[in-house]
Simulated scan of single mutants.
Amino acid sequence: MKVIACYSMKGGVGKTATAVNLAYFAAKSGLKTLLIDLDPQGASSFYFRVKPSSKKWAERFFNAYESLVKHIKASDYENLDIIPAHLSFRNFDALLADLKNRKNRLKRVLKGFKQEYDLVILDCPPSIGYLSESIFIASDLVLVPVIPTTLSERTFEQLITFFEDNIYQLKKIVPFFSMVQWQKSLHKATIESMVARYKVFLNTTIPYSSDIEKMGEHKAPVDVFASSTQANAAYMKLWTEVSEAHL
Rank of each mutant, 00 (worst) to 15 (best):
Y208H: 13
K55G: 13
R90G: 14
H246C: 07
R108Q: 13
R108N: 14
S88K: 00
K51D: 15
A58V: 09
S228R: 05
L186V: 14
I191P: 00
S185G: 09
S127G: 13
E244V: 12
S29R: 11
M236P: 08
S53Q: 03
I128Q: 08
S29K: 12
I128P: 03
F163P: 03
N91K: 00
I82D: 06
R197C: 00
L68D: 07
G42M: 04
R154S: 15
Q115E: 15
S45R: 13
M9W: 02
V195M: 02
Q158P: 02
L31I: 04
F225S: 01
V195I: 01
T161W: 05
T190H: 01
D211F: 04
P207L: 03
N232S: 07
I4L: 13
S75K: 01
S44W: 12
Y47D: 09
A64Y: 09
A245I: 12
R49F: 12
K103C: 02
F177V: 11
V144E: 01
A189H: 12
K10Q: 09
G42C: 07
E153G: 08
G112I: 00
A220G: 07
V195K: 11
Q115Y: 15
L141E: 04
S53N: 10
K172W: 05
L122Y: 10
I212M: 14
Y7G: 15
Q181K: 06
V242E: 07
A233S: 06
L238R: 08
P40N: 05
V50Q: 06
V180P: 05
D81R: 05
E213T: 05
R60T: 09
L170E: 12
Q183M: 08
K171F: 09
E116W: 00
Y117I: 08
R90H: 13
Q41T: 10
L141W: 03
K184Y: 04
G30A: 06
F62C: 11
P145M: 06
R154T: 14
Y65W: 03
N101Y: 04
D98P: 04
D81E: 08
P148T: 01
A97R: 08
F46L: 10
A94W: 01
E133P: 14
S44P: 13
S88Q: 02
D81F: 05
D223K: 08
E153T: 12
S132A: 15
Q169Y: 02
K199V: 07
Y198N: 15
V109Y: 01
E217I: 11
S178Y: 08
T150A: 15
S67F: 12
K10N: 02
T161S: 08
N91W: 00
Q230G: 04
G12S: 01
T229N: 06
H71E: 05
V142N: 08
S88D: 14
F163M: 05
A85V: 03
L151V: 12
C6R: 07
L95D: 14
V69Q: 12
P84F: 07
Q181V: 10
A19Q: 10
K10A: 00
M215Y: 09
D93W: 06
S227G: 03
D37S: 06
I83P: 01
L186R: 10
V224G: 09
K15P: 00
E116Q: 14
I72M: 03
I137M: 02
T161D: 10
F136I: 08
Y198F: 14
S193Y: 14
L159C: 03
I72G: 03
Y24F: 13
L151W: 07
Y7L: 15
M9G: 14
Y130C: 06
M215G: 14
L238G: 10
G12W: 12
I128S: 09
Y130S: 15
V144T: 10
E78I: 09
